[in-house]
Design a protein around this nucleic acid. Sequence first.
DNA 1: TATTCGTGGAG
DNA 2: TCTCCAAGAAT
Length: 348
Amino acid sequence: MVNMSQILLEWYDRNARVMPWRVSPSDRADGVKPDPYRIWMSEVMLQQTTVAAVRDYFRRFTDRWPTVTDLANAQDADVMAEWAGLGYYARARNLLKCARHVVEHHGGVFPNTHDALLTLPGVGPYTAAAISSIAFDLPETVVDGNVERVISRLYDIHTPLPTSKPELTALAKSLTPTERAGDYAQAIMDLGATICTPKSPACGICPWREPCLARANGTAADLPKKVAKKPKPTRVGIVYIARREDGAWLMETRPDKGLLGGMLAFPTTEWGETTDDHPPASAEWTELETEALHTFTHFHLRLRIQTAWIDTTPSRGHFLSASDFSPTALPTVFRKAFDLAHETMRHN
DNA sequence: TATTCGTGGAG
DNA sequence: TCTCCAAGAAT
């Protein structure tokens, strides 16, 4: 049988998707090298995030900060504001940490070994392998959700994830070619994203349809098996949206650790099974009839919204002038609350 | 090893 | 409406 990786690479040469961070196979053949900074940036953004969601963020980040040194010199608040809406905000904090580390300890040049990449903040096994193979053409093996799905089907593995992960990783490694490892990594992920999809995979047009055991056994659509996830509880909280007479908004920067860490926010109570009213300033607070509803990774939130105009010194938070405030810098849950409240908070 | 950490689109 | 889930990492 013809080499499996060769079949996939030939498929990729004909079907590679166009992405802002990607060097096409033909350009690669002409000697065009990918920029490690852009590969790193894209891979961090793509962690648990769809290509469609990442595209515009990637363009804005690389337009504003074209090199790792530019990013290292950026203000924390500017980076967090630019990341707002993309989710998993620890990625943005680690992005800055990593950029500054690369400038400080590597002279602004990304390290070009898998082990050195692994030590960088926000770079784990997947991302280190992705940068190694795609940016430096090292024969490392990427194992993301796509690869787990493709490999579990190819070998008809019924052991549920994450138990099966070591086995899938070993099988994935055994398939990785020593030549064109970067194109191969992108090829197997493209395959998972476009053909070997979670629901109703297009086995009929798959370049690996012949060797695929799950296709032969009719089990492809049922793989990979996964352990059942816990149901999401519902938490409640109160958000306080207040303005001063000059129009400035009362805001908080959330602590670096935990949910929405480091992000610009309105003051809130803690979120739990119940919540206690703890406004950040004494004022005449008015509660909206409508709550902001939002779902995070592991819980649903019903957020009550209270508004006020205040002329006393708040006990917490800081004022942000109307001209410096932009709702686009807010994580989505606060953006929702703002959209519901701003009608009643118009400044005359 | 298990939990925490966002968001929006697909079905 | 609701569940799944997407190029995972940190703790």
